[in-house]
Computed example of a mutant assay.
Amino acid sequence: MSTSATSSAARPPADPRRDLGAALRRWAVTGGPGIGVVRVLDRHGFGSVESGQLVAGTTDGEVGGLLYLGALDDSAHPLAAEAASGTATVREAHVGESSAVAAGLACAGGATLLAHPLPAASAAALGEALETGRPAALLSVVDTGATLVLTGPGLEEPTGDLGGVTAAAAEQARALLRRGATATERLDVDGTAVLVDLLVPVPSVLVVGEGALGGALHAQAGLLGWSARTVTTVDDARAAVAAFTEADVLVLLDHDPAFDAALLDGLAHGRGFLGALGSRRTQAARRERLLAAGVTEDALSAVHGPVGLDLGARTPAETAVSIVAQVVALRAGRSASALASSAGRIGG
Rank of each mutant, 00 (worst) to 15 (best):
R134V: 03
S140Q: 07
Y68N: 06
R26M: 07
H218T: 12
V249I: 14
G160H: 03
Q283G: 09
L206S: 03
G152L: 09
G214D: 02
A193V: 07
D143V: 14
R18I: 14
A193W: 05
T112D: 15
L69E: 06
D190V: 07
G191A: 10
G270K: 08
P12M: 14
A123H: 03
L199R: 02
G36M: 04
T30K: 12
A221W: 03
L79D: 00
V194Y: 03
A242V: 10
H77P: 01
Q220R: 15
L118I: 12
T192M: 08
L253E: 00
A299F: 09
T30S: 15
P316C: 05
A115R: 01
A193S: 13
R331L: 11
R186S: 14
A10H: 00
A71E: 03
T296V: 10
G109A: 11
G21V: 07
D190A: 12
T182A: 03
S140I: 04
L72M: 06
L118S: 05
T87P: 04
G32M: 02
L41F: 14
S75M: 11
S51C: 11
A84T: 02
V295M: 09
A181N: 05
A111D: 15
R186V: 14
S335V: 12
L138G: 06
L155W: 01
V63G: 00
F46V: 09
L206E: 03
A88S: 14
T87C: 10
D42K: 12
I35N: 01
P201N: 11
D143W: 14
V295P: 02
A332T: 12
D260V: 04
P12G: 09
I35Q: 01
L263S: 02
W27P: 02
A129E: 10
E62K: 06
V249M: 10
L162M: 07
S122Y: 04
G222N: 12
L339Q: 07
D310H: 08
E157G: 04
P13A: 10
D42I: 09
L139V: 06
A338F: 11
P158T: 05
V196D: 03
G164F: 09
L291S: 09
L263E: 02
G164E: 12
S301D: 15
G109S: 11
V95S: 06
A125Q: 08
P201H: 11
A102H: 04
D143T: 15
V207E: 01
D260P: 01
L252K: 00
V307H: 01
R331K: 14
P16C: 14
G225T: 07
L277V: 11
E318N: 07
G294Y: 08
A212G: 10
P119L: 12
A338W: 08
Q53A: 08
L277I: 08
T315S: 13
A276N: 00
D254R: 02
L41A: 15
D190H: 11
L339T: 06
G34N: 04
G294D: 10
S301H: 15
A221T: 07
L199D: 00
A5K: 04
S341H: 14
G344A: 14
S342R: 14
P306S: 01
A124F: 04
A84F: 03
A123L: 09
R286A: 00
A102G: 03
A219M: 10
C107M: 15
L114T: 04
A325R: 05
A115K: 01
L69N: 01
S342C: 11
M1S: 11
S75C: 13
S322D: 07
A22S: 11
E156Y: 06
A83R: 02
A325T: 05
A276Q: 00
A76P: 01
L118T: 05
H77M: 13
